[in-house]
Design a protein around this nucleic acid. Structure first.
Lengths: 255, 255
DNA sequence: ACAAAAGTGTTTATAATACACCCATGA
DNA sequence: TCATGGGTGTATTATAAACACTTTTGT
């Protein structure tokens, strides 16, 4: 077991990585009318944590976050925002860290590394859960989606980071392409509306939502979806990414 | 000269401070219808920089920023926001750093410290310039206000940080108590409007601005200001801080 | 033909904008 | 008394919200 955790090439020491500094990633996905975050279950325990990592000596900090995201999702994430630096002195329980390291049979270098105080830069990534299968990291045996509304207790201040992310998208939904990142390429107006309702936590008028969205000129209407229930088939839409970005540049909000 | 820079008690080494991590502060002030930032002129040179510092081993990161602000202004700053982490590998020109350290006659410990790669957390503080006299830090001989519109070239990515701050308040002015932090306790409606116009970079209708502001219920009207020009005297206002914060809690924007 | 959901149109309420008017002041 | 800036009112326009009507589909 000890061998599993002393990954060759990982070299968790201050020669390879910047000490005292970490990145943690809140990876949000949307499915079944709910927001989910991707969390890791640490090996041989019931402790859950956010995916995160460290910054190589010669690596931009954003690249470190992207590297972690790539490792967990296999994807090159396009929506990535720095949210907040969590830098309180007491944010990590070092007794808990000790106990974990012993249970995992970590070597001395690894122990020394994790026993530092860490200041963590929290990132927010938005992804479509259908587009990949989550991959655990070397310290975890599970990597899976948990709904924001029923999130287990996470280690350290990771629940706080998720709460921060929840607030963040609630505010930024007016200015950011969350639909583009969270939804599949093609979607119905109803699906898009539901996403906004879930994020905003309030009902929106169907007719007005449709009119507003179409008026923005950032959606492309496709053929109708002939399937499903005994009723009128909805159009499918996708984002006109060029216009979407033009729109964002212009600085306007919507909804 | 060397002695000046090896400040007793400052101990710039990785025993006392977290290595590789710094805080930089964009301190904005408003005066004469302009926005200013507080910058430092490094000793024996024409190089300007933002005030900044390092994080003590047992210090919260926000406290490190507040400490730097207290040292530069003598004030306990109430408006302080984390803006962004500047973490590119090439953000500091290490040749330039070497040259500076030699010119200042820094000792070996200090040299080793500054020759690290630094990732910097940029903070934004808003202050009323009338409320204090700026204080240089141990590496500078001047600490003064420079207008954002005519900012000298600063070292490293510090101009970028100021640009970030300029954008930041332009967006956040709708949600944040910038008036409360930037203006003197009592001010006229015209003064407040001018501040909004400078930050938003557009003219606002006098009558509508006044109505909107008063409707928010966050201003207290005081006696008229009997002075100045050959015309009607304006009322003085101050912020009702309680209502201001209630208003912010409610999450609404204005203007 | 009917129920269910989609798409569009119309009315009403609310907020933003433009600008007109009168007031107070000191030269 | 007049020029100047301050305070308030009103008409107009634009946007948001509420909701009604029609269309399309599969059963």
């Amino acid at each position: 077991m000890a061998n599993d955790n002393n990954i060759p090439g990982l070299n968790l020491d201050s020669k390879s990585f910047i000490p005292s500094l970490s990145v943690d990633c809140v990876i949000l996905g949307y499915q079944n009318d709910q927001l989910y975050a991707l969390v890791l279950k640490l090996k041989n325990s019931n402790d859950w944590s956010l995916p995160g990592g460290f910054i190589k000596k010669d690596e931009d900090i954003d690249s470190a976050a992207l590297r972690e995201l790539k490792n967990r999702t296999g994807l090159d994430i396009s929506f990535l925002k720095q949210m907040h630096v969590f830098g309180g002195t007491q944010r990590r329980d070092l007794d808990f860290v000790d106990q974990k390291l012993n249970a995992l049979g970590a070597d001395e270098t690894t122990k020394t590394w994790f026993q530092q105080r860490f200041i963590s830069v929290a990132y927010l990534a938005l992804v479509n859960p259908e587009s990949f299968t989550p991959i655990p990291d070397p310290w975890s045996d599970l990597c899976e989606w948990k709904p924001l509304n029923d999130m287990p207790q996470l280690i350290f201040d990771h629940n706080e980071m998720i709460a921060y992310a929840r607030d963040y998208i609630g505010i930024q939904i007016k200015y950011l392409p969350i639909g583009l990142s969270l939804l599949p390429e093609k979607f119905t107006m109803k699906t898009l509306q539901k996403l906004y309702e879930v994020v905003l936590e309030r009902a929106l008028d169907r007719a007005n939502f449709q009119k507003k969205m179409l008026k923005l000129g950032i959606l492309i209407r496709h053929e109708k979806q002939m399937s499903g229930g005994a009723h009128k088939a909805p159009y499918l839409y996708s984002f006109n990414e060029l216009k979407y970005h033009e729109f964002l540049e212009s600085g306007f909000g919507f909804i």
